[in-house]
Design a protein around this nucleic acid. Sequence first.
DNA 1: TCGAAACGAGTGCATATACACTTAATTCAT
DNA 2: ATGAATTAAGTGTATATGCACTCGTTTCGA
Lengths: 154, 154
Amino acid sequence: MEKHSNPINSTELGQVVSSCACFNLRKASRVVTQHFDEILKPSGLLITQFTILVAIARVKSGTINELAEVLVMDRTTLTRNLKPLEREKWLEIELGQDKRTRIIKLTSTGEIALTKAFPLWQQAQNGVVEFLGESRWSTLLLQLAEVTEIHHSR
Amino acid sequence: MEKHSNPINSTELGQVVSSCACFNLRKASRVVTQHFDEILKPSGLLITQFTILVAIARVKSGTINELAEVLVMDRTTLTRNLKPLEREKWLEIELGQDKRTRIIKLTSTGEIALTKAFPLWQQAQNGVVEFLGESRWSTLLLQLAEVTEIHHSR
DNA sequence: TCGAAACGAGTGCATATACACTTAATTCAT
DNA sequence: ATGAATTAAGTGTATATGCACTCGTTTCGA
């Protein structure tokens, strides 16, 4: 009765490649990340860094935990991702009232970098939307939001 | 006429977070990767490693370049990702006829690891499909395939 | 046939990602 | 008020990702 005491067959292997939710998401991420990084290059920002700066600008200032929550990113990942941004002086990290916390703030240099990068982001974003078409794009965005919710169901 | 000589406004910032193709893809990837890794844990394989082994099993044997093509992954990324798999003896890398190439082959140990991991992959995959529902899932898979095509249009 | 161009793969470097564990500060119950 | 439980954040370690550059091999044209 053990269905998989025998080696995986060719059909099953094909199934994984063609339909694995994780592989196909990661693959699309790789491709789209390269698309954005390519266009953002003149700004000196990677798309991942641009995103973090935007998140900081939105909340004005916040703790690591708060930012990680917004970005749906592991706290320790965020801590390390802040390092290059701090080095470039795009953000500042200061002690909070509660001395366990660190408050992240955008600097004026960071604000300028963000302002310069924004039109490039728009260009890259438009590239994707135009490539897919408005309708398919809005569907994709919706499904991405839904699949992301799977992490609350644990 | 310079639209963005002024700082980005709050509406624009919100736009990025809610609609950036790259951020939303990467966010979904992070969440779904954790979902798969969690369920695959007993197999000792990460989902990224499982995917690579499947790709190798499918083509029986192939060069780094061929595999990277299939996986839509940078060649140098693949080279490094093979390292832990080689260390665990799940695959072998031998010299090709053309001595510039390396031929990647699954070992019998790798075959066994794959066979054990497959039901877990199915479980994780079914989790996603059931969470979204068949219809939304198939739509998502389709749109992911389409957006991935953006890398040919360069 | 020989030298240049093309090609396959590896390495240096930088960044992204997250789990397990640790440390320091705060909160809260007794 | 004090000690235990909780909380915020950093660090060790491992993997993932890709660009720029290098090195060795093959191919191909003069």
